[in-house]
């Protein structure tokens, strides 16, 4: 199990100014333990790429109280009042990206593709400053790939080699982020021996995953809650 590290090791892999890709949609498929650890570190000027910044005081939302964030890249920030407040006070830069474009930019980042042309957002405010090109009579805009210095992702289960499976819609941005990060740390609920996961089920092959961290939360009533007495 040489991929298993302690959550307290996180500090070694993240530098000031890094771009972090963080999995999750709302609070589903979110690496809560890694986010808690990150919030406790004194990192600065981080850019976080994630669909949304969690919710108020939950998931990535807690980072808005630590001063570690410089910029957020995602599709939906309106539902977190703290994010809106930080942005309006000039404390947080926001890059708004349509959800499908965000997913594809990250996928390209991991796939060795520099960019792509898409119809999404062509002719809108979000296309301002982007190259336009007409293909077969329709206007497309150029979108660049996104890569991360570190990806913090969440899976349900790993094997000792780092193969991952996900819980239902907890998959979301996690597989694409597993490929697009220079260093990839996956938080999991359980680690089994290599060979115990059905190869037909494995969604993220181990080649993308550098480290595993055990989830500090337990799921009760369908929600991750911190176990009593845990740190």
């Amino acid at each position: 199990m040489d991929k298993l590290i302690k959550r307290s090791d996180l500090t070694k892999y993240i530098k000031d100014g890094d771009t972090l890709l963080v999995g999750g949609f709302g609070l589903s498929g979110t690496p809560f333990t890694l986010i808690d650890e990150l919030a406790a570190l004194d990192k600065k000027n981080l850019t976080v790429v994630s669909n949304n910044l969690g919710e108020k005081d939950k998931g990535l939302g807690i980072l808005l109280h630590t001063g570690c964030l410089k910029k957020a890249v995602g599709s939906y920030f309106t539902s977190n009042r703290d994010a809106v407040k930080a942005w309006s006070k000039g404390e947080l830069e926001i890059e708004l990206v349509p959800q499908g474009t965000l997913a594809e930019r990250i996928r390209c980042g991991g796939a060795g593709i520099a960019g792509f042309y898409t119809k999404t957002a062509a002719g809108t405010k979000l296309a301002e400053g982007k190259e336009e090109k007409v293909f077969d009579g329709e206007t497309y805009i150029l979108e660049r790939a996104i890569k991360g210095d570190v990806s913090l992702i969440k899976a349900l289960k790993a094997d000792t080699k780092g193969n991952l499976i996900y819980d239902h819609t907890g998959r979301n941005f996690n597989p694409a982020m597993a490929a697009a990060g220079e260093i990839v740390i996956a938080e999991v609920d359980e680690i089994v021996e290599a060979g115990e996961l059905d190869p037909f089920e494995i969604t993220t092959p181990h080649v993308y995953v550098d480290y595993l961290v055990m989830n500090n939360y337990v799921k009760i009533g369908g929600k991750y809650v911190v176990p009593t007495g845990a740190n």
Partner: peptide, 20 residues
Amino acid sequence: WAIPGKDILGVGGAMDLVAG
């Protein structure tokens, strides 16, 4: 997706659906 004069901080999947 956006109201003139208000903060524009959410788009979600709206534009992808309109395009596709």
